[in-house]
Amino acid sequence: MSASLQNDPSLTVPAPTGRGDRGGNLSIARNLGLIIALVILCVVGIITAGDRFASTDNLLTILRLAAVVGVVSIGMTFVITGGGIDLSVGAILALASVWATTTGTQDMADSIGWIAMVFSALLVGTCAGLINGILIAYGKVVPFIATLAMLASARGLAEVIADRKTQIIRNQGFTDFFGSEPLGIPFIVIIFAAVTVAGWFLLNRTTFGRRTFAVGGNPEAARLAGIKVQRHTVYLYALLGLTCGIAAVMLMSRTTTGSSTHGTGLELQAIAAVVIGGTLLSGGRGTVIGTLLGVLIFTTLTNVFTLNNLSTSTQAVANGVIIVIAVLLQQRIADRKT
């Protein structure tokens, strides 16, 4: 795999820690661990809930739940691999969902079609991401602070626009289209799959992906190698903003509403999924497949808890324990291999 790295004309200096899904044994071992965890979860699900767990309907329920978090997590994988972090994803999703469902946007949708709502959600998401990126790359604001500011102001703006009310989507075409189930698969699950494949391709098979690893691993080396680090950072946050916009459309179709309360706590779910997937929080190493598995582990866990009638907050505790165990295991594996 590292051969392709050398072939990249933009990378005359080998990237210092260009290891993602292409880390050979390391990444296989890590993904194997996640797959084993997922299998164990499924076995627990089958033992405790039997056919209720192992049914097509339940599988689709898990995937529908995973779709919204999943799309954002794929975007988050890019930002974290590129050495950043974004706490504002839930707020951006809320803002996009509200903006796309205002009376103004819905009137526009009535005259030119529901695509106007989709377009405005994607545009708002991307612009918010762009602002994050510019603040961080050119304003030299620490990502944690810049996106914390965006978290507060985007959700505040969403509340102002919506007047803290829930905006109901009138457009039947929108709900019909995104609520459809071609070949029995919910449309939002298809979008999730498409975003995952596109994310994997972008990170592992393109110059953009290789630059992302380089920027996250060692920005100075990346700069010396001729990568425009600042511009690339802006792209990464804009990309994450775009995935927030996509997730907003998915949640709009699921709830038939836009609301300033949508996506509360989404940032933590997405970061947790990315981190247990094996992407390094310090950047330079990232895996889309790992993130996908991370998202599936958390959603399957939620599903098993729901099926077993476990109503208390024990699940939040379980989530916390899983994150710590996953990170500890990864450190062990990494120590042994390197």
Binding site: T61, I62, R64, L65, V68, V69, L251, R254, T255, S259, T261, H262, T264, G265, T302, N303, F305, T306, L310, S311, T312, S313, Q315
Partner: peptide, 11 residues
């Protein structure tokens, strides 16, 4: 489980 996440409550 009680939740303020509509996505989860729907599921």
């Amino acid at each position: 489980e009680g939740t303020n996440d509509v996505n989860l409550q729907i599921s």
